[in-house]
Every structure is written in C-alpha cells, then in structure tokens.
C-alpha cells in the first residue's frame, strides 16, 4: 500500500462498526486557523495511519464474523477435526456393534453356552452395548468440547 494514498473513501460493507469509525483526519479544534506545521503534521499523520492500518491485524474472530476466506480456513480446520472425532467415535462403537449380528449369526456355540441359565448370546445382546454407548458418548462429548475450547483459544489469541 503506498504511503501517499488517501484512505479508501468507503469501507467495505461488512466491517465492524469500530472500523467504520476510523476517523477522517481530525483538525485542531481550537477555533483557530491550522498552522502550516499543523497541516503538515496532519498529512504526515494521515500517511502514517494508512500505513498502520495496513499493519493493523484483523483478529481471526473478525474474519470469522465477516465470513472471509481467511476465517473459512480456521473454520474448516475445526469442522474437519470435529468430523474426524465423530468418525473416530463411530468406529469405536460401530465396529464391534456392526459385527455383532454376523458374529451371533455364525457362532451358534454362543447359544449353547449358558450363564445363570441364560444363553451367552442373549447376555451379549442385552448387557454390554448400552454402557458402551454411554461411555463413547461421554468421551466424545468431552473431546468435542475440548476441540471447541481449543478453537476458541486459537481464534481469540
């Protein structure tokens, strides 16, 4: 950005209010004519400000709020991480749960063996899965919250 350029006349539409507020150059308000030195200072100041505004970093949070491409980079990372986590949890219970019917179908021995007078297959059907669901659900929720927290930290730093 060149130092001589005037500040852009219009701010892009979705900037935050604070930035729209960036003032047009202020003149001394003491009711007197501005001296030449002051004018020069004003010009210099304007130039510096333009320069500095280019320097001024927009936080990822703002980028997110304005849904820019930059914000999208952050968000995509979060989305991927969350999806990976979900798939991980899906595998954690789904692999075992998924082969259960086949295993019970092809292993009639499980029906022959009895525990407390009830076939092992029936025990397998009733007992272990609900606690597994709850445990996986709880672990997942904990990790998902951690991902959200990490994202929050990343964005707000």
């Amino acid at each position: 950005m060149s130092a001589e350029r005037e500040p852009p006349p219009r701010t892009p539409p979705r900037r935050s209010r604070r930035q729209e507020l960036w003032p047009p150059p202020l003149r001394a308000g003491r009711g007197e004519r501005a001296s030449r030195a002051e004018l020069r200072a004003g010009r210099q100041e304007r130039a510096t400000r333009t320069e500095l505004r280019a320097l001024r970093l927009r936080s990822p949070r703002q980028e997110l709020a304005d849904s820019t491409a930059h914000g999208e980079v952050y968000l995509r990372r979060l989305r991927r991480a969350q999806l990976q986590l979900s798939l991980l949890a899906l595998v954690a219970f789904g692999a075992v749960f998924g082969v259960m019917p086949v295993a019970l179908y092809l292993l009639p021995q499980l029906h022959g063996a009895h525990l407390l007078g009830v076939p092992v297959a029936v025990w397998i059907l009733i007992v272990p899965m609900p606690p597994v669901f709850i445990a996986i659900g709880w672990l997942y929720a904990r990790r998902a919250d951690a991902l959200d927290a990490a994202f929050r930290e990343l964005v707000e730093k």
């Binding site: 935050s16 604070r18 949070r61 997110l64 709020a65 849904s67 914000g71 999208e72 968000l75 979060l78 989305r79 969350q82 959200d148 927290a149 994202f151 929050r152 964005v155 707000e156």
Partner: peptide, 24 residues
Amino acid sequence: GSDAMLALHAPEGLGLRLAEDDLD
C-alpha cells in the same frame, strides 16, 4: 455453504457474540 457452516460449527462465546473488547 460457508455462512451456514459458520453458524453450524463455530462454538459459542467466540465474541461473535458479546465480547468485552467490543465495548471499546
């Protein structure tokens, strides 16, 4: 769908909602 994605996935309390430093 990026706008929708933001609404779907961005955690709350990001200051996309009320943040102290917006009170500048």
